Computed example of a mutant assay.
Amino acid sequence: MIRTRRGRSVFKAYLFLAPFLVLFAFVVVYPIIFGVRLSLYGQRGARMWYVGLSNYRTILGDPRFWEAFKIPLFLLLVQVPLMIFLAILIAFVYERMPRGRAAFYRFIHYLPYTIPAIVAGIVWSYIFSDSMSPLRPLLDLLGFAGVRILNREHVPLVLLVIIFWEFTGYTAFVVFSALLAVPREYAEQAQIDGATFWQTAFFIKLPLVRGVITMLFIFNAIGALQVFNEPWMLGALVVLPPNYTPAMYIYNSAFAYGRFTYATAMGLVLACITFLISLYVLRMASRQLLARGW
């Protein structure tokens, strides 16, 4: 009887999950399987033939593919840690504000995240355009008339500005939501013992939301490795190489050069690299939590 009841419960659970599982299989699982199959073929126009792992061997020796990781590596080492640190500071500032004012600033800071990346790219392309930028009159007044606002050397810094503008407010919102779950007794006890607000924030509260910080780091690292929209839109203002980022190289290989099977193989390699980096960060964070007994 117990097994029957358990079997019925399991059946009902899968019945409720069936719509999601069907959609997940069609939207996620099937494209991955089809992509793996497609990556095992060579292509010339509409003609395709089986080549096995030849595409992957070519990728390993393709310097243009590996050079494309310069910008993602820059974002991973600079943008991601700095943005998370700024988001943590902003989240703690929210805590110090009166409730109404904090809600207003959270709303303002969250707004850029609601704007689609393509639209944000268009807006920032306008801001950094030599002919239409609102910064042009100010630069002319300061004696920089005729100097280009944006060139290829400045693109990484511009990407930092755009990504900070897009995602810092959202990241701060997530950190603040996690801080709300921390029991007030911890902070009150620390303040009784003489700790300041910032000592309580960084030594009491922040370790308790370490798991959320780790997940934010992983999600932002995935975004850094797959960055596409922002440099693609800036490409209308400054000439960027087709392999400026891995995602741009994959896109150009498929739609500019017609190498769809090779682009599919590169996409799968990029997905594996992203998975390995995420797994490494997650395991390192788990080891630290276990070492501290959390």
Rank of each mutant, 00 (worst) to 15 (best):
I2Q: 13
R5H: 10
R6G: 05
R8T: 08
K12L: 14
Y14V: 07
L15P: 02
F16Q: 02
P19W: 07
F20R: 08
V22W: 09
F24Y: 14
A25D: 08
V27W: 15
Y30H: 13
I32N: 07
F34N: 08
G35D: 10
S39Q: 07
S39D: 10
Y41H: 14
Y41W: 15
G45E: 08
A46T: 06
M48L: 14
Y50G: 02
N55H: 05
I59K: 00
R64M: 06
E67W: 02
F69K: 01
K70G: 03
K70H: 04
Q79I: 02
F85H: 00
I88F: 00
V93E: 12
P98R: 14
R101Y: 15
R101P: 01
A102W: 12
A102F: 11
Y105E: 05
R106T: 02
F107W: 10
Y113E: 07
T114D: 00
I118F: 11
I118D: 00
V119P: 00
A120V: 15
A120Q: 12
G121E: 11
I122H: 06
I122T: 04
S125R: 07
I127L: 15
I127F: 15
S129T: 05
S129R: 04
L135D: 03
L139R: 13
D140Q: 09
G143T: 05
F144P: 00
F144S: 03
R148N: 14
R148S: 15
R148T: 09
R152F: 06
H154W: 15
P156L: 07
L159F: 04
V161F: 12
V161C: 10
F164N: 02
F164H: 06
F167W: 09
Y170G: 03
A172G: 09
A172T: 10
F173V: 12
V175Q: 14
L179H: 05
L179F: 02
V182C: 06
V182G: 06
V182Q: 09
P183E: 12
Y186D: 10
E188P: 00
F197L: 11
W198N: 13
A201K: 06
A201S: 14
F203E: 09
F203R: 14
K205A: 13
K205Y: 05
V209L: 10
V209R: 11
R210K: 14
G211A: 12
V212R: 11
V212K: 08
I213Y: 00
M215P: 00
F217Q: 06
A221V: 03
I222E: 03
I222A: 04
G223V: 03
L225M: 14
L225A: 03
Q226F: 03
V227Y: 02
W232M: 15
A236N: 11
P241E: 15
P241W: 07
P241M: 08
Y244D: 14
P246S: 12
P246W: 07
M248S: 10
Y249D: 11
I250M: 10
Y251E: 15
A254Y: 01
F255E: 10
A256N: 12
A256Y: 13
Y257G: 08
G258M: 08
G258R: 09
T261P: 01
T261E: 05
A265I: 02
G267D: 07
G267T: 03
V269S: 01
C272R: 00
T274K: 02
V281P: 01
M284W: 03
Q288V: 08
L289C: 03
L290I: 08
